[in-house]
Amino acid sequence: MTEPLNTMPENEQPVLNISGLSTVYNLKIGQVKSVTDVSFELARGEILGLVGESGSGKSVTGLSIAGLITAPGRVVSGSVLLHGQELTTLSENALRAIRGNDISIIFQDPMTTLNPVLTIGQQFFEVIHAHRKCSYSQAMKEAETALIEVGIPAPRERLDNYPHELSGGMRQRVCIAISLINKPSVVIADEPTTALDVTIQSQILHMMQRLVRERDVAMIWVTHDLSVVAGFCDKLAVMYAGRIVEAGPVQQVLSNPAHPYTAGLMDSIPGDCLPGSRLEQIPGTQPSPLQLPSGCAFRTRCKYARNECAEKPPEVAVGSGRTAQCFFPLTEVQNVRRK
């Protein structure tokens, strides 16, 4: 990190700048375009919610940014700029120095992320030692402070525990503490609260909100849960079949969605409509990634689709800082009627 943490200049360069990122998997049965032409940027202290159904490419986007795509997958085009440095062309060794240090990832299932045969303390030491010279006892001191920050009681004893001795919420907190130990500037969180209870989820959201603010970390929060995004993120990007179909500030997008898919997702969440009534559902299922429909991939399920939708949809601006990839973005009038 080059700049001091607590200053926020007016026209700050984004920490992370992604443009035209595309990732494909070359399989025997054909080419799967997991991520197509994804672009966004992220500033310090900003949380981006990356939302989509399973298979929409949201996790692959996170992995592509961290350079974790392995064969048969490949990042075919686009650039990932971290503090202006291009990551997609870096060698594996140079990437290793960045991963876990300047970019870190929190995965969905902490039990598979943590090594079951190492104590929590040893796993902290591995991550610290990989990036800077540090004695074991000094690493333990740092680890203890990190565990206190994520709200784990009796941190000294926990360092000698193995992962299976901790509860699910505790394990995820350990993962978060490990991912933040080298003071990264970008954190990619891949559905970190999906496997947890609401009460634990809200503890973790509370803690992450505080840590992001205190440390000015830029964060990508990958999730399928729009309602988490609503209270937690600053920006929102909705993915469908590998593309970002709508992006913008959270409140604006959710109060007035422009893409029919975003609107459909919101309608299928129970809560606002009359209990016991049928939920508005998006008809059909996601198309197979091997045979995406031409043009707009959502058109086979979209009730507003017309013939033009078979062409590639344009990216239109639908307000300040908002875009949608759609020929016929929903207007405010339509949204009022939709409710």
Partner: peptide, 16 residues
Amino acid sequence: EEIPRIRGGHREYQPI
């Protein structure tokens, strides 16, 4: 209190 709400707007989480 802890149900995330889609129309709740930005909020502070006050967990149990």
